[in-house]
Amino acid sequence: MALSREQIAQRVAQELKDGYYVNLGIGIPTLVANYVPKGIEVMLQSENGLLGMGQFPTEENIDADLINAGKQTVTMATGASVFDSAESFAMIRGGHVDLTVLGAFEVDVNGNIASYMIPGKLIKGMGGAMDLVAGADNIIVTMTHASKHGVSKLLNSCSLPLTGKGCIKKVLTDLAFIEIKEGKFHLLERAPGVSVEEIIKLTEGELIVAGDIPEMKV
C-alpha cells in the first residue's frame, strides 16, 4: 500500500534528531510536526520570521499578527523568537537550519528539483523554496512517486523549471525512501506491502537496488 500523507510525515519525523532546527514546507511537510518522536526536542523555523513555531491556536487565541509561511494562524512555542525576513533567510542561507522538508513536482538523478511552476498551467512562485534548497545541506523532499496516470516524478532530468540544481539527496515518496548520489537513485526503503518491482516500474531515472530492501516502519 502506498503511504498516506500522514504516513509520509511519520516516516520523515523518524529523521528528526534532538536539538534540530527544522524548516517544514507547506503541505505534507507541515504534518511532520505532529509526529516528533517522544523524548526529543526540535524547533520549527517558519521563514516568514518565526523560530519556535507552536501548534494552531484555539479560537480565542487567534492572532492575525502570528502566522506561519503557509499563512496559517499559529502560536509560539516556549523559547520562540521572531525576526524580520532578511534575518530569517540569513539563518536559511547561512546553513544554520539542520533539516529542511519540502514538496516538489519532480526530482531527478542529479539532485535537481522542480517545484514552483508548470509553464502555461500553474504559477505559484518559489516563495522561500529556492533559498531553502540552496542553503540547506540536509533536505528531504516529500512527494508522490508518480502522477495519478502513472507518470514517474523521479526522472532522468527534470522537465519543469528548476527550483534548485544538484541539491537534493533524499526523497520520500508514497512508495519509497530514496537517496540520490553519483547521478543515480538508490532505493533505501519501500512502503509496507509495495514491491521493489512496482517502485522500479514507476521510477524513470536509474534506480539502484542493492540487496534486500527493508519495509519502512510507519
Binding site: 505532529n34 494552531f56 491556536p57 484555539t58 492575525a64 502566522i67 503557509g70 496559517q72 494562524t73
Partner: peptide, 18 residues
C-alpha cells in the same frame, strides 16, 4: 482590519496541531 488568510484553529489544548 487585519484580515486572516488561513484561519486554522485547534479544538482544545488537548489536541495537537493538525
Amino acid at each position: 482590519e487585519k484580515r486572516i488568510e488561513q484561519r486554522t484553529v485547534r479544538a482544545s489544548s488537548a489536541q495537537g496541531a493538525k
